[in-house]
Write a protein that binds this DNA or RNA. Structure first.
Length: 396
RNA sequence: GCUGGAAUCGUCUAGCGGCAAUGACAGGAGACUGUAAAUCUCCCGGCUUCGGCCUUCGUAGGUUCGAGUCCUACUUCCAGCA
């Protein structure tokens, strides 16, 4: 028989938190877990060996970005084989791009209120949303395209990740309550369409692919709870927790969602991975996380340490380790802050690429280790203590 | 020694009578959360009550309302000839 997703809760923490294991056709994910983001079927500047070396358990790619290669990926046997990763995988629907190319063009995903919210004029946007789907312009080719729930599911089922995301509309912080009501209705209709289409194709590659419905609803409790209830009534294998959050609202919004969602199905918090967000998310019942931040910030010179993040720019000639007692391959090999800064600032492309690799390895290991420790603390009942100590040291 | 050419903010560079002076790099600060991101923003002579003020383009003079820009001398460097 074709076995899809299986989720077992192994320990509980508070009303919503839990540690568990997600069993997929390509392996297990011990939760809470951070999934590395390899949008284009590979993590920038990290090899599959690097990913295994830092303890990554799963990789997220994007159906939108891989749409042109879907048939090729299917022919190879699916994303796990095609990417060379061979472990559990997840694909996003492309729903995020509806926002990042559309109403959220610019830096709207910002979680800081002071930074304000930029919303560009509609004509400048690359995506237009209707109930049918999304018309958008490929930012690289300028070609007009159309994507809807059916196409997203077809693409994702060809790519063949173990877990797929229903096609949703992520609203931006700039959108009003009224717009969020409208967008949520659309997301719910799209969720049903996604599920129907997914069921037609989920076994096409010879193993059972699973589908998560995505909870939207912005920052409003009534919308969030209703969205979670409605999705819970459908035959999804798990749930994505989506949205553009203000940091201060995150915990409460997750609580609204997860109080309504069935406890026995896994939940993925989309697009967040800063340590405080992971600890809060795990406490509020999120099982898996994904985010580009560890890799992107590494490339931009931000190195994670237990005493807070550092900007490598400031460490020319510094022979201290990136982070004391770090167990990542970069630190174990003896690379120092000064070493990495020199590679980063080098005019030599190969040296820069080596920097991107070494720094990404460090930051990803930092976040993966945090999820491992979170899980361990939940299993032995010391989560609260672990969280408090970690945050006290990390947040200045 | 002669003849050309050149000297600008850490470096290279723009500038051909209205200039605190272009651009790049280096340097500094910040941002980044389902990747239009090996990216983006800001600072980069000094002071400032942010309106300005002061000191700058090898050195010293000069012409001019006004000189980094024109003239003279000097210094240094480069090229060619000796």
């Amino acid at each position: 028989m074709k076995v899809g997703l299986k989720f077992e809760v192994q320990a509980r923490m508070g009303a919503l938190g839990r540690a568990g294991v997600i069993k997929t056709p390509h392996g297990e994910i011990k939760t809470p877990a951070f999934m590395v983001v390899g949008t284009h079927a590979e993590v920038k500047f990290m090899s599959a060996e690097d990913l295994r070396a830092v303890g990554a358990q799963a990789m997220l790619s994007n159906g939108y970005h891989l749409r042109g290669r879907a048939a090729e990926i299917a022919a190879a046997g699916g994303l796990a084989v095609y990417s060379g990763w061979h472990g559990p995988t997840l694909t996003d629907s492309g729903g995020f791009q509806v926002m990042s190319l559309g109403s959220g063009l610019g830096k709207v995903v910002s979680m800081k209120r002071e930074q304000g919210v930029v919303n560009t004029a509609h004509k400048e946007r690359l995506a237009k949303v209707s109930d049918d789907g999304v018309d958008f312009v490929d930012p690289f080719t300028g070609e007009p395209e159309f994507i809807d729930p059916e196409r997203s599911m077809q693409i994702q089922c060809q790519i063949g990740a173990d877990i797929h995301m229903a096609f949703d509309e992520l609203t931006s912080l700039a959108d009003s309550y009224e717009y969020n009501v409208e967008a949520l209705e659309r997301t719910m209709a799209w969720s049903r369409r996604s599920l129907a289409e997914h069921l037609k194709h989920r076994d096409d590659l010879g193993y059972r692919q699973s589908l998560y419905g995505v909870v939207q609803g912005g920052r409003w409790e009534d919308l969030r709870r209703r969205a979670a209830q409605d999705l819970a009534s459908l035959e999804f294998d798990g749930f994505g927790l989506g949205g553009a959050f203000l940091k201060e609202d995150l915990g409460e919004i997750l609580r609204w969602c997860n109080e309504e969602l069935p406890f026995e199905k896994p939940r993925h918090l989309l697009g967040l991975s800063h340590p405080d967000d992971i600890l809060l998310g795990a406490e509020m019942g999120a099982d898996t996380f994904d985010c580009v931040a560890p890799m992107r910030e590494a490339r931009h010179g931000k190195i994670y340490t237990l005493d807070g993040d550092i900007n490598l720019r400031k460490f020319a000639g510094d022979d201290s380790p990136l982070d004391a007692d770090c167990d990542c391959p970069t630190c174990r090999a003896g690379w120092t802050r000064g070493d990495l800064r020199a590679l980063w600032r080098s005019g030599d492309l190969a040296q820069k690429q080596q920097f991107y690799n070494l720094a990404s390895i460090h930051n990803v290991r930092f976040i993966v280790r945090l999820t491992e420790q979170t899980r361990a603390a939940m299993l032995d009942g010391t989560f609260g203590d672990f969280r408090d100590k970690f945050l006290k040291r990390y947040m200045h």
